[in-house]
Simulated assay, not measured.
Amino acid sequence: MESKSMSIYALWNNKGGVGKSYLSFQVASEYARTHPQQKVLVVDLCPQANSSSMLLGGMERGEDAIEALSANRPAQTISGYVAERIVSPYMTPHSGANFLTQVSQHNHFVSDNLYLVCGDEELEMQSSQVRLACTAGPADAWRIVHTWISDLIEDVRRSWGQERITVFIDCNPSFTIYTEMAMSAADRLIIPFSADGSSKRAVKSVLSLVYGIQRRPGQVQSEFYRNSMQYRMSLPLIYSYVGNRLTQMNNSSASAFRNVVNEIFDEVFSVWQNQPQLFCPHPSGTPAPTSKRGFKQMFEEQINDANTASVVSGAMGIPINRLTAGQKSFAGRSVMVNQSQLDKQQPNIAGFVQEIE
């Protein structure tokens, strides 16, 4: 990691459908809204570009904006940056700021201080060339390629002339080369999960792939972990694990969800007990927790499902804390957002963002 004057958060879980992109959209938007004097950057490393779509105005305007940015030559997206790096993989062109988009130019519901390096489906097509660059060059080619996103972020910071910026990286669910690059760039990891059985396996997979934590004797550690250790590259510290859009239903459903959340807590807490150095106590200067309760208070977050309001927020590109109750129209239909739905999630997002430094 090059600059400790930045806080770089990767949001990742090795499973789709946990609301990772939705959470990236909400957290980045709320952070920018509540920190108006600070520039905030989102890097969308997911080929689906869902967080970019939401940030840029939702399912209609956001998709149009992505198409327009992708049609530029070079593309004003993450793929445009990757294409430039592929040409000369081992020498940084210091051009990362060329691929920035000020989000409010496309979506007036988002603060002027929020910027995006837009996602792009072309990432999928480029991945084999990026992988080849990891092995085809100098002895430390793998290390250099895995710093491309760090280089991009540093380019942006310098172009802004700011000592400190806050960055959120939305990752591909799969542990692709781009997810590896995000892990190499980030200094803090937020792990969203949903309350189902496969989420527990996915959280275990995150701990194994990134930190080499073996779930059974003799388990092979990931190439990413082994190479990160070989090149003495820093790994992101676990900042929080977030039960995202947890459904509040009948008592039996809520009980089942609580059981999954408790199982994931036990999994992450056992890692804390054995390797507390993998975690980032916060806020800065706060003593590390000494009890199960203290650990849960510091590292566990829960975001309730706002039901229809959640859908409308993402589809219209209106951050949940700027969404109001009433009739909303999008995609040719009209739906009602109730205040009771907003009350379920707005305080969760606000409270979680207050925990982010």
Results as ranks from 00 to 15, higher is better:
F168Y: 11
I238V: 11
S174Q: 13
N227Y: 13
N244I: 10
Q221A: 06
E163F: 03
S240L: 05
D151K: 03
V261F: 07
M183P: 01
I264K: 11
S199Y: 04
E180R: 15
S205A: 08
S222K: 05
Q230F: 13
S228R: 10
R164G: 11
G197C: 03
A254V: 12
L235Y: 00
V167S: 05
I165V: 09
T176Q: 06
V242T: 10
I153V: 12
T176A: 09
M181A: 14
Y231T: 07
S198H: 11
R215L: 05
G212C: 04
E180Q: 15
E154M: 09
D196F: 04
R226A: 12
D196C: 06
G197S: 12
M183G: 03
R158W: 06
K200A: 07
F168N: 06
R215T: 00
V268Q: 04
S194Y: 10
T247M: 11
I238C: 03
Q162F: 02
V242N: 05
S159R: 12
I238N: 01
R164N: 15
I169C: 07
V260Q: 08
R158V: 09
L235H: 09
E154P: 02
V156D: 09
Y231G: 07
Q214I: 03
R164L: 01
S198M: 14
R245D: 03
R216V: 02
V210F: 00
W160I: 10
N251M: 10
E180G: 10
S240C: 12
P217E: 12
D155H: 11
I165K: 05
F265P: 04
I190T: 01
E267P: 01
R201V: 08
R245E: 09
V268I: 12
T166H: 08
E267A: 08
S184T: 13
A254Y: 13
T166Y: 04
D266C: 01
M229L: 14
D155A: 10
L235A: 06
E163S: 11
N227R: 15
S222M: 08
P173T: 06
D196E: 15
I169N: 04
S222I: 09
R226S: 13
F257K: 06
I191A: 05
P236N: 08
N250C: 11
F168S: 06
S194Q: 13
A195E: 10
R188H: 14
T176C: 08
S205Y: 02
R232P: 02
S252R: 15
G212V: 04
M233T: 06
S198E: 10
V220Q: 14
F265A: 04
I177E: 14
E163M: 07
D151F: 11
S150V: 11
V203M: 05
T247A: 12
S240H: 07
S255P: 00
L237W: 04
T179R: 08
